[in-house]
Nucleic acid binder design. Structure first.
Length: 201
DNA sequence: GTGCGGATGAACT
DNA sequence: GTTCATCCGCACT
C-alpha cells in the first residue's frame, strides 16, 4: 500500500492537485467489499474566489463546512436529488478548495461495481461521470468528511498505470451559472481514455 | 415553514 | 437534442 501522504493534500494550488490526481487510484472498502479505480478525470474548485464552488464568497453552511476542514478528507454531497458526487478536499484548514473526481478506470472489484450499477456487462459508462462512479464505488453521504488516510476510502500512488497519460484541460462541466468562471479551463482528463465523461469538450 | 434549483444520468424522440 | 426522475440544501418569510 502506498497511500498518498497527508502532505499531498496540503497544497494550495488546487489546479496542480487536480492534475496530480490523474493516474492515482481511488479505493473504497465497505465491510469486506473493496473496489478501486484509476482517476482519469477531475475538476478543480477554488474555494471562496470561484463562483462555481459551493464555498464561493466564503459561504459557510452545514454542507460546505467539510470543504473548510484541512485537506485530506472526502466531500460527498447529493446533486439533483439523485446523484452523489465525490470530491477530495485540499489545502490547509480554512481554505475550502476541492477537486471533483469525474471519471475512473476500473481496477479492482469489477463484479461489485457492475452489481451496484445494476449492469450486466462492462461499458465505459460504468464509471464515466461523477454520479456514475460514486454509485459504482458505493459512495454516498455516509462517506462525507472521511479521512482519506483511513480504511474506508483512500487514495494510492501505484506508479504509472496509464500509458501515455497526456493531460488535456478544458472548461468545467455543468457550471454555466458561474459566469466568466465557467470559462476557466479547470477540468483535466487523460486524453483518449474511455472512462472520461463527455470527451469532446 | 415554504419554494426553488442543482458540479447528473438515462431514456427517450 | 430533449425530458424527466427525485430531494436535499439554501435563501427567504
Amino acid at each position: 500500500m502506498a497511500k498518498l501522504p497527508f502532505s499531498f493534500y496540503q497544497g494550495t494550488d488546487v489546479n496542480l492537485l487536480a492534475q496530480q490526481l490523474l493516474g492515482k487510484v481511488l479505493y473504497t472498502r465497505l465491510g469486506d467489499e473493496i473496489t478501486a479505480g484509476i482517476i482519469v478525470e477531475t475538476e478543480a474548485y477554488k474555494g471562496v474566489e470561484d463562483r462555481a464552488s459551493h464555498a464561493y464568497g466564503g459561504r459557510l453552511t452545514n454542507r460546505t463546512q467539510t470543504m473548510y476542514e484541512r485537506g485530506g478528507i472526502s466531500y460527498v454531497y447529493l446533486c439533483y436529488g439523485i446523484h452523489h458526487l465525490f470530491n477530495v478536499v485540499t489545502a490547509p484548514e480554512g481554505v475550502p478548495h476541492a477537486v471533483l473526481v469525474r471519471g475512473l478506470e476500473p481496477l479492482q472489484g469489477l463484479e461489485l461495481m457492475l452489481a451496484r450499477r445494476k449492469m450486466l456487462v462492462l461499458k465505459p459508462n460504468l464509471t464515466a461521470g461523477p454520479g456514475a462512479l460514486a454509485m459504482a464505488m458505493g459512495i454516498d453521504r455516509s462517506l462525507n468528511a472521511k479521512d482519506l488516510l483511513g480504511d474506508e476510502i483512500w487514495l494510492e500512488d501505484q506508479g504509472a498505470l496509464l500509458s501515455e497519460p497526456e493531460i488535456v484541460s478544458c472548461p468545467r462541466v455543468g457550471v454555466d451559472y458561474a459566469g466568466e468562471h465557467a470559462l476557466l479551463p479547470w477540468r483535466y482528463y487523460v486524453k483518449g481514455n474511455r472512462y472520461v465523461s463527455k470527451p469532446n469538450r
